[in-house]
Design a protein around this nucleic acid. Structure first.
Lengths: 350, 350
DNA sequence: ACTGGCACTCTTTATGTTAGAGTGCCAGTC
DNA sequence: GACTGGCACTCTAACATAAAGAGTGCCAGT
């Protein structure tokens, strides 16, 4: 009830925590009472500040690396800061337009994703990361087959507007160009416009049926289609990063050995994908501070993500990875706006 | 003439230089006379070794970081070592088969190139780099057009065996599917099987002619073709790297700031591409030691490359980047064999 | 409730100091 | 003449010590 209760902070204490965090973000150094007394515009002496800081420390919001070194916000303190004290910097309209323009210059998804990643890393000076759009809800437009040598066939899959996937499939015998054309026609006629996942299901259903009776054409079509749609095309490397090297400039991360592990994780991408995957299910900006991500290697890093949508349906997640002391006030709106603009760009094309 | 002449080294001095370099490669530490006396199996005292080392130093082959620190081979010394003293380690046949198998598991060029890069970095524990095959000499197999919204058209270009390039082109009016089909047929009939560069030339020639008289179909075909073949499709990011993080484990490179620059250069790739481009024109293994590459950022790095060929025609270059003290005896055969196997794999597929 | 003052702690930086590695040179040996 | 052992010398790396600076906690006073 009272503003002195254990887990409620007085107005002033909040203001001081806020000032402390902001000061800390500038250079990552512990901030002392004198310093803080100046930064916060309160007209109190350092001694008073010290008392407050002692309180904040006992609440676990700040800690000192050693006896005489000022205070550093703990992850918990940062969490409180972003949850309750953060004032988001408003973003320049011109900058938004710049971002928009960048996306409008390109048309294919791959390039767009890469651009988004570079944009994030460039604007925040952190590492940018974009998960490529889920292929769900992609409609099949067109299938084409080209015979290669032996019994191998190149299948070209055109989905939606401008995605083209191609894969080589090996069949149990050689097919003539005419036969392939027939099969393609059949598939195009039957499935053109249908959702990819629908197609896969239909193929499987048809397989059941086909065991018993099926004419030649259908048999072939099903055989091929099974292979072509086997996997939700484009499952592979589904996250794109940029600006990893930006992280080297932060002293707190530049321990050569941790850096190695971090970069190794970036290359593996496994854990990053998994983390981003979780963000898919949550709406809006998502922030993981330090170990909140649950991944060892990201121990000293924070991750800020936002999902992006096409047609009101979330199809992917993007964000940045940086030290826990990143400027959340600047980063958050950038991530936010980039997500919106990328979504819009993916929507409008075609 | 005599083996004491200024630029000729006695047998023993060569042996000692060789031993010194090999010793140095182990840990990158300067090697002292006592140490070296032991490593080389010559039955001479450290004092004698010291005399020899003084000679080597005056020839510029070794140098000491400071008065009492043993000797380190200079780049010139490493160059001499590589040119005259190096005994290449013979490579395990089983290992060759392993490499071969890895490539046979995949079929498309992109994946192959990525595999090669990872293979190089994995086997050498350095950074692997592969320049993607030049598209020259790729025959056009098939062209396909798909109408998008407005006057935009998705062009699909199938070359050779399994390469598929696609690009969106914007035309000056909307075309019906039938028209597009017509044009595609025309182009396929006329150019299928022709070399891409031939096609481009023909298009340009035809443009000249077309200015005067041309029927409707040809006019359209030429207009589209001009856009489609505008650039030698796949010009973009033409080098693939892997294992950059391996370089972090070398003390001599792990100055955080140099590392930053190095990694930035890897991301830019501009200079790497340029360097590899030079190697395209030279036959066989190419070695740049330290500043021989002419690129500032690669100052403390060596680059070992080998071109790879398809159909006896050089189409690309691959190699590794590592500290100047890399184990050339192990690295060289690995680069060599990988180039051969990659060439063979690209050749045999299809 | 806030402040100034003060003793205390801990880091950082500078300054020695020492041990060890390695050299260069010289005088002696085969 | 080529090689060796010995020795003085140099330089670094590692450790100890000292001083300076930053910051704290606490207390007594306003």
């Amino acid at each position: 009830m009272s503003d002195k209760s254990q887990n409620e902070l007085s107005e002033r204490n909040q203001a001081l925590l806020k000032a402390l965090v902001q000061q800390y973000m500038l250079d990552g150094q512990p901030v002392g009472s004198k310093n803080l007394a100046q930064a916060a515009n309160l007209k109190v002496s350092p001694a008073t500040i010290r008392n407050v800081m002692a309180d904040l420390e006992s609440l676990g919001l700040v800690s000192s690396p050693h006896t005489s070194a000022g205070r550093v916000p703990t992850n918990q303190g940062l969490r409180f800061f972003v949850d309750s004290l953060l004032t988001i910097e408003h973003i320049n309209q011109k900058k938004i337009n710049d971002i928009r323009d960048t996306f409008e210059a390109v048309s294919d998804t791959q390039t767009m994703v890469a651009s988004a990643s570079e944009m994030l890393s460039g604007l925040t000076r952190l590492a940018g990361v974009v998960m490529v759009p889920r292929s769900q809800r992609t409609a099949l437009r067109h299938v084409e087959f080209l015979p290669l040598s032996d019994s191998r066939v190149l299948a070209i899959l055109v989905t939606n507007e401008q995605e083209v996937h191609n894969r080589v499939i090996t069949l149990n015998r050689q097919y003539s160009e005419a036969e392939l054309q027939q099969v393609a026609n059949y598939l195009n006629e039957k499935f053109s416009g249908a959702d990819i996942s629908t197609v896969r299901q239909s193929i499987i259903d048809e397989m059941q049926l086909a065991r018993e009776n099926m004419d030649n054409l259908m048999a072939r079509a099903v055989e091929m289609a099974e292979k072509v749609f086997e996997e939700p095309a484009g499952q592979e490397d589904s996250v794109v990063m940029a600006g990893e090297t930006n992280l080297m400039q932060f002293k707190e991360l530049s321990d050569i050995d941790n850096l190695r592990k971090l970069f190794a994780a970036f290359n593996e991408k496994q854990e990053i994908i998994h983390l981003l995957d979780q963000c898919l299910h949550n709406e809006g900006i998502q922030i993981y501070i330090g170990d909140e991500s649950g991944y060892q290697v990201l121990g000293d890093c924070s991750v800020v993500t936002a999902p992006y949508s096409v047609d009101n349906q979330v199809v992917g997640v993007l964000g940045v990875i940086g030290p826990t002391r990143m400027s959340y006030d600047k980063v958050i709106p950038i991530v936010d706006i980039t997500a919106k603009v990328l979504g819009a760009a993916l929507n409008s094309r075609g």
